[in-house]
Nucleic acid binder design. Structure first.
Length: 584
RNA sequence: GCGCUCGUAGCUCAAUGGAUAGAGUACUGGCCUCCGAAGCCAGGGGUUGUGGGUUCGAUCCCCGCCGGGCGCACCA
């Protein structure tokens, strides 16, 4: 993020000012109601003023009085203010405030004064972690991971901008069966290259990238890992169960390769992780920490976590396995943490991982998961509670599935079969900007239909161009003017007096509030919608009023408004990882 | 079957418990001798799946029903 650490200096905060006026009126009219929360909302309709309060309606019950009467008493008690042009009582008892022109346009100077820091929240000491993507490094990222990446990255940026101390983390599942399956898949493909064709299991990784890795190994190490097909088959067990057969093949690999198994395993892991990292970097998605699952085993953290649960009496043994009594914590059934073969389950390392997160001192931990993991939330929270941790400090946001549509046809997605559209393919086809923005056009808990043809189209169908176009237009008019932009911060704004100018100013003033609200709701999509609205207000104004007019004061004021708009577009788009082109 | 989740304009989607439920798209009709027409202006379009409840007020909160998605491993 480019924003400086300078605090946002809002020359005039209308909301805060009006809240103060209402508070004073309330103290005078009904001092015993001092606890009442004073809310000001921005009315949808311009005729309802700049801000509206429902305070009178909220008090109606306790005061046993008609809300309109309360509103009248409150309005009479309001202290005088030179920022308020008009106060109306409307509807069921709304108090509507209309600001003076000066108060309305003051935001322009505030934006230009703060620059990249406009909208930035006050620095909080709260340490917050966002863990996202965390896809198994067993193949290329697909478009579903892309949504998690775009959401998590935008969310993390948003939270940081809102004032939190944010750490972005990727949990690498480098221990466990899936990695073994990938390793054995690559090894079998490698054997094929020598004509030793062991029938390739249907539940192994089918993608071409597995063959590519096999080629690399052959190129670098020749026949070092070669074993005759008979030797492999000799290790096979008699079973019809596909998963059991796959496990046999893994055991065969480990037996035949001995120490070399670790090389194959490490090689495929490294290849996939490197690829994944590069993919995300190109997508503008950066991580501060890549956390290894295996490290949890190596440091004994997993064993410690299970032992702690055992000590507190939440573990029992049945059928040779170690079970966590998660039903005591709201889960629908108890869960195995250590299998009868002695191996820990993924759940066990995940308990350890989350305890580790808290041990690292995060006040709040946000996990971004695929929606197919929703059943997992209660057991992880349960385990945290059982371990004496405060489970409410863990926030799990679930990102729903993505369906790709091309020519109205739904593209199939299956990681194991290798038949899926990768994030790379998607980025190459529609571009990073459209990709990042498109992912943000839906709340994360809604399934997303990603229309490739629409995202690709260079037309006004495509909302990302609409926003970027506003930015490019402003750049263009500023270039034609060719004056001193820095001087615009001190411009006299009184020539701004059209409704469209006030509307645009109100939109700019909304930005800091929107940041806080979107951060609180973990809802970066709200920022995307805001930017569309902002661009719309700008286009409307720009089309109706000329900026580079002959009258100098008017020209300067409009240039200042345009420059402030560009600043907020930049601040917002950069949070979403979308570029701000000077021309298109 | 049980659990979670979502049903809003023809389509894609918004809306801290607030006023006449909003955008975009599509459709219809206008606007470039004028700072970028990837733009703007105007118009028609809705019983917010359905039936109850809570209250001054419900798209939002609670319950039932209908419909879609996901999950229900000693996989991750």
């Amino acid at each position: 993020m480019t924003a400086s650490s300078a605090p946002t200096r809002i020359a005039f905060d209308a909301r805060q000012h009006l809240t103060g006026l209402l508070r004073a009126a309330l103290d005078s009219v009904a001092p015993e109601q001092g606890h009442a929360e004073i809310l000001l909302e921005r009315p949808k309709q311009a005729s309802h003023g700049d801000f509206a309060s429902n305070l009178a309606m909220q008090l109606a019950r306790e005061l046993k009085t008609n809300p309109r009467q309360i509103a009248e008493r409150l309005v009479r008690a309001l202290p005088a203010s030179d920022a308020v042009a008009k106060v109306d009582i409307a509807g069921a008892g709304f108090i509507n405030f209309t600001l003076t022109p000066t108060a309305r346009t003051a935001v322009v100077a505030a934006v230009l004064g703060a620059g990249p820091a406009f909208g930035r929240g006050p620095a909080s000491r709260l340490k917050l972690q966002v863990e996202f993507v965390s896809a198994n490094p067993t193949g290329p990222l697909h478009v579903g991971h892309g949504r998690g990446a775009a959401y998590g990255a935008s969310l993390a940026s948003l939270l940081a901008f809102a004032g939190f101390d944010v750490t972005r983390e990727y949990y690498v599942n480098d221990a466990g069966r899936q990695m073994d399956i990938l390793a054995v898949s690559a090894w079998l493909r490698y054997l094929e290259l020598f004509g030793e064709a062991v029938p390739f299991p249907p539940n192994a990784y089918q993608g071409d990238y597995v063959r590519d890795m096999a080629e690399q190994v052959k190129l670098a190490h020749g026949d070092r890992y070669l074993h005759p097909v008979e030797a492999v088959l000799a290790c096979m067990c008699e079973t019809d169960d596909a998963d059991a057969r796959l496990d046999c093949l893994i055991l065969a690999g480990k037996d035949l390769l001995g120490e070399d198994w670790a090389y194959i395993h490490g090689h495929v892991l490294n290849e996939q992780l490197t690829d994944c990292r590069a993919d995300l970097e190109e997508f503008g998605v950066h991580f501060d920490v890549w956390f290894s699952e295996r490290s949890l085993f190596e440091t004994g953290m997993v064993a410690r976590a299970v032992a702690a649960l055992e000590k507190s009496g939440h573990i029992y043994i049945q059928d040779g396995a170690r079970w966590f009594r998660s039903t005591s914590f709201g889960d629908e059934k108890d869960r195995v943490v250590q299998r009868d073969n002695g191996l820990y389950t993924y759940f066990a390392s995940d308990i350890a991982y989350h305890l580790n997160k808290f041990e690292r001192g995060f006040d709040k931990v946000v996990d971004v998961w695929g929606a197919d993991h929703h059943g997992y939330v209660s057991r992880v929270k349960g385990a945290l509670s059982a371990s004496g941790a405060d489970a409410s400090r863990l926030e799990v946001t679930l990102v729903q599935f993505v369906s790709l549509f091309r020519d109205g046809q739904k593209a199939s997605m299956s990681t194991r079969s290798g038949e899926y559209v990768t994030l790379r393919q998607l980025r190459a086809e529609v571009g990073n900007d459209a990709c990042r923005f498109f992912y943000m056009l839906r709340k994360c808990d809604q399934a997303l239909d990603f229309d490739l043809d629409l995202a690709k189209s260079e037309s006004n169908d495509n909302p990302v161009y609409y926003v970027q176009y506003a930015h490019a237009r402003i750049c263009s008019v500023l270039a034609q003017w060719d004056g001193d932009q820095a001087a615009l911060a001190a411009t006299d704004l009184t020539p701004l007096q059209h409704e469209r100018e006030y509307a645009l100013c109100a939109r700019l003033a909304e930005f800091p509030e929107l940041i806080q609200q979107a951060a609180r709701d973990y809802a970066p999509h709200a920022l995307a919608f805001y930017l569309k609205d902002l661009a719309g207000d700008f286009h409307s104004w720009y089309n109706a009023e000329r900026v580079l007019v002959d009258d100098q004061p008017t020209r300067q004021a409009r240039l200042a408004l345009a420059l402030a708009t560009r600043q907020v577009l930049q601040n917002g788009l950069s949070l979403l990882g979308v570029s701000q082109p000077v021309s298109m």
